[in-house]
């Protein structure tokens, strides 16, 4: 009888253990590939390549020499691939690099800019005159950063190759001249 009880206890505990949900912390730089989709490693590789290309190419020195520190605004990134990809993950890394190197200035855009203006508008009627921020004193951007994400999928039976192409472009707002195009291609072979 005792033996049977022991077996039942072991069986139940094994069942509970096998069903339990397990979470382990891993380094963000060591994200393993699970099903071959776009993941953190791809985003990081893209960010590293783009930062290196963008800050290391001639447009920056050319502009800085003639007009000083360029100011960049982030525009739209269009994801035309087959997966849901959020470009903000690598764009933010780029923005951070711009600010940290102090070589490139950055201004807010989109919803955040709207929020700033709304706050400024609120200050006009609620803040003290000495602390109230004025309208019309924003920094105008010299360049706009726009981009696209494309993918090519080739699949047969259980094999699949996926190639992602990420392009970022920096365009002079006044002249429409494209001064820099960054590119990162990531290819994957997936076997199911």
């Amino acid at each position: 009888m005792k033996r049977l009880n022991l077996i039942v206890v072991i069986f139940i505990s094994l069942t509970i253990l096998s069903c339990s949900h397990q979470v382990t912390r891993i380094e963000p730089t060591a994200t393993p590939d699970i099903n071959g989709s776009w993941n953190n490693t791809d985003s990081r590789m893209t960010a590293e390549a783009m930062i290196m290309q963008c800050l290391g190419e001639a447009w920056l020195s050319n502009y800085s020499a003639s007009k000083g520190k360029p100011v960049v605004i982030v525009g739209v990134v269009t994801n035309k691939s087959h997966e849901h990809i959020e470009a903000e993950t690598f764009i933010k890394d780029m923005e951070r690099a711009f600010i940290n190197t102090t070589k490139v200035g950055l201004v807010q855009s989109g919803k955040k800019r709207e929020e700033l203006r709304a706050e400024k508008a609120d200050q006009q009627s609620n803040a003290t005159i000495s602390s109230m921020k004025k309208f019309g004193l924003e920094n105008g951007a010299d360049f706009i950063l726009q981009g696209s994400i494309n993918s090519i999928v080739d699949a047969y039976k259980r094999k699949k190759t996926v190639t992602y192409q990420i392009n970022l472009e920096l365009t002079n707002i006044e002249t429409n001249e494209v001064v820099w195009i960054g590119e990162k291609k990531i290819s994957k072979m997936v076997k199911n």
Binding site: G75, V76, K80, S81, E83, A87, S151, V153, A155
Partner: peptide, 18 residues
């Protein structure tokens, strides 16, 4: 300028055997 600083999702459906 409403979509600035965002990713516009214009994805397509790729054929996947599995």
């Amino acid at each position: 300028s409403g979509n600035m600083n965002t990713t516009v999702q214009n994805t397509y459906k790729a054929y996947d055997w599995t």
